[in-house]
Amino acid sequence: MSHVRIEGLTKRFAGKPPAVAVDDLSLEIEPGEFIVLLGPSGCGKTTTLRCLAGLETPDEGRISLGDQMVLDVRGKVNLPPNKRRIGMVFQSYALWPHMTVRRNIGYPLRTRRVAREQARRRIDEAAELVDCAALLDRYPAQLSGGQQQRVALARGLAAQPDLVLFDEPLSNLDARLRDQVRAQLHELHARLGFTAVFVTHDQSEALALGDRLAIMKAGRIEQLDTPERVFEEPATEYVAGFIGMSNRLPLRRQGTGWILAGGPGTNEQTGEASSSGGASRPVADELPVPRSHSEIAVRLRPDDLRLCPAEEKPPAHGVALAAEVVDAQFGGRHMDVVVAIADSRLHAQAPLTGKPWARSLARGQRVTAWFAKDAALYYDADGARATAHAPAAAVGA
Score class of each variant (00 low, 15 high):
His3Gly: 09
Ala19Val: 15
Ile35Glu: 10
Leu37Cys: 08
Gly39Glu: 01
Pro40Gln: 09
Gly42Arg: 06
Thr46His: 02
Thr47Ala: 11
Thr48Gln: 06
Leu49Tyr: 04
Ala53Arg: 09
Glu56Gln: 13
Glu56Gly: 12
Ile63Met: 13
Gly66Trp: 09
Gly66His: 07
Leu71Ile: 14
Asp72Thr: 05
Arg74Gln: 12
Pro81His: 03
Leu95Gln: 05
Gly106Tyr: 03
Tyr107Leu: 15
Pro108Arg: 04
Arg112Ile: 06
Arg113Gly: 10
Leu129Tyr: 04
Ala134Cys: 03
Leu135Trp: 07
Leu136Gln: 09
Tyr139Cys: 08
Pro140Asp: 12
Ala141Gly: 04
Gln142Asn: 10
Gln149Cys: 07
Gln149Ser: 04
Ala158Cys: 15
Pro161His: 10
Pro161Arg: 07
Val164Thr: 11
Val164Glu: 06
Asp167Tyr: 07
Leu170Glu: 05
Arg176Gln: 15
Gln184Ile: 06
Gln184Val: 08
His186Phe: 08
Val197Asp: 09
Phe198Gly: 04
Val199Leu: 07
Asp202Asn: 08
Ala206Tyr: 03
Leu209Lys: 09
Leu209Pro: 07
Gly210Ile: 07
Arg212Ile: 11
Ala214Lys: 05
Ile215Leu: 14
Leu224Thr: 03
Asp225Met: 02
Pro227Ile: 02
Pro227Ala: 00
Val230Tyr: 03
Thr236Trp: 02
Tyr238Cys: 02
Val239Met: 00
Gly241Tyr: 01
Leu249Val: 13
Gln254Asp: 14
Trp258Asp: 04
Leu260Ala: 10
Leu260Glu: 11
Gln269Val: 14
Glu272Lys: 15
Gly278His: 02
Ala279Gly: 12
Pro282Phe: 04
Val283Gly: 00
Val289Leu: 02
Asp303Glu: 15
Cys308Phe: 03
Pro309Ser: 12
Ala310Trp: 14
Lys313Cys: 00
His317Ala: 14
Val319Leu: 05
Val319Ile: 15
Val319Asn: 05
Ala323Arg: 01
Ala323Asp: 05
Glu324Thr: 15
Val326Met: 10
Gln329Ala: 14
Val338Met: 11
Asp343Glu: 13
Gly354Trp: 03
Pro356Ser: 08
Trp357Ile: 10
Arg359Asp: 11
Gly364Asn: 12
Arg366Phe: 12
Arg366Ala: 15
Val367Phe: 08
Ala372Glu: 11
Tyr378His: 03
Tyr378Glu: 01
Asp382Gly: 01
Gly383Met: 02
His389Tyr: 00
Ala392Glu: 05
Val395His: 10
Val395Phe: 09
